[in-house]
């Protein structure tokens, strides 16, 4: 199977490729599958290079969410005295949201800069370009796994045992990744042409941290605003994480969650279609 380039197969199973302006490739998605090894190796490259030539290396993935959590716990829990969900310790409430937020923020910023960072590849070789932004999600995911270990440690410390909802966590991790992929694809494609978007993302990420229910529970939002608040797709993801990790303490607000889900799907659709539409001009513009 893997030896399609082998000499014996020349002439036998060769594909006929037609290159024409505006031609949409029928086998794009199967091509994507054929280039899976490239996906793996690009992801591996990003991960192994990420903390090269830094002193504390991978500890960066630990320190940043941990410090933010401490600050948020102090400000929102102690000073502003916002209520936690049920019996859950405030630090856990914050950290359960820090996890998906950091995952989302990292994935979004990495993927939206990904095409520009790989400009040399785009100008010199062909492959389905979708591989580049999606491969960056892996880096964000690895950072997430590291922070996750801290969460487990915190749970031990607080002697907090999550309920059966914990089993749904992988679904919500995927959701956080998809939530970042949609806008990420869109912005990275725009970034090729208009570098303005390079400045948009740090702003969105900084702004979003306060707009999303990271430092506080979304239960503090007045009931009549909940649905409107859920227009922010990360509200659904974060609520979902809390529901999984804090068990019955954070019941899921279903209409809001479904709305977030719909928004994530819409962004993903827009992102993928825009990306596919502009993909062929990347090499000319980058």
């Amino acid at each position: 199977m893997t030896n399609t380039l082998n000499k014996s197969t020349i002439g036998a199973s060769e594909a006929i490729l037609v290159i024409e302006p505006g031609r949409t490739e029928k086998n794009y998605w199967s091509d994507l599958w054929r280039y899976r090894e490239l996906f793996v190796i690009l992801a591996w490259r990003d991960v192994s290079v990420r903390y090269k030539q830094t002193i504390i290396g991978i500890l960066w993935a630990v320190i940043r969410p941990l410090l933010t959590m401490v600050v948020f716990t102090v400000i929102f829990g102690r000073i502003a005295k916002l209520p936690s969900d049920g019996q859950a310790p405030y630090a856990l409430l914050v950290f359960a949201a820090m996890l998906p937020w950091t995952l989302f923020a990292n994935a979004l910023s990495e993927s939206s800069n990904s095409l520009i960072n790989n400009a040399n590849l785009i100008g010199k070789v062909y492959f389905p370009r979708l591989i580049i932004p999606t491969a960056t999600l892996v880096t964000a995911f690895i950072d997430f796994l590291i922070s996750f270990v801290i969460l487990l440690g915190m749970m031990l410390w607080y002697k907090f045992i999550p309920g059966w909802q914990f089993l749904y966590l992988p679904g919500f991790i995927l959701l956080a990744l998809l939530a970042s992929l949609g806008p990420g694809l869109w912005i990275t494609a725009l970034n090729v042409k208009y570098r303005d978007f390079r400045y948009v993302i740090p702003f969105v990420v900084q702004f979003g941290l306060y707009v999303s229910p990271v430092g506080f529970s979304s239960n503090v939002i007045p009931e009549q605003w909940r649905l409107l608040y859920s227009l922010n797709p990360m509200v659904g993801v974060i609520d979902g994480f809390r529901w999984c990790l804090l068990g019955g303490n954070s019941p899921l607000y279903l209409p809001g969650f479904l709305l977030s889900l719909g928004i994530i799907a819409a962004f993903l659709y827009l992102g993928v279609t825009h990306f596919r539409k502009t993909e062929k001009t990347f090499a000319d513009l980058i």
Binding site: I16, L17, V18, P21
Partner: peptide, 30 residues
């Protein structure tokens, strides 16, 4: 297939590998 033609068409039978520069994608830290 790095860039698309504005007009005309090409039909290619078989897989193409292109070598437009050596060391494409080399990462200096690796």
């Amino acid at each position: 297939r790095i860039t698309e033609p504005t007009e005309g068409r090409v039909t290619i039978r078989g897989r193409v590998a292109s070598l437009l520069e050596v060391g494409t994608g080399f990462h200096s830290e690796l």
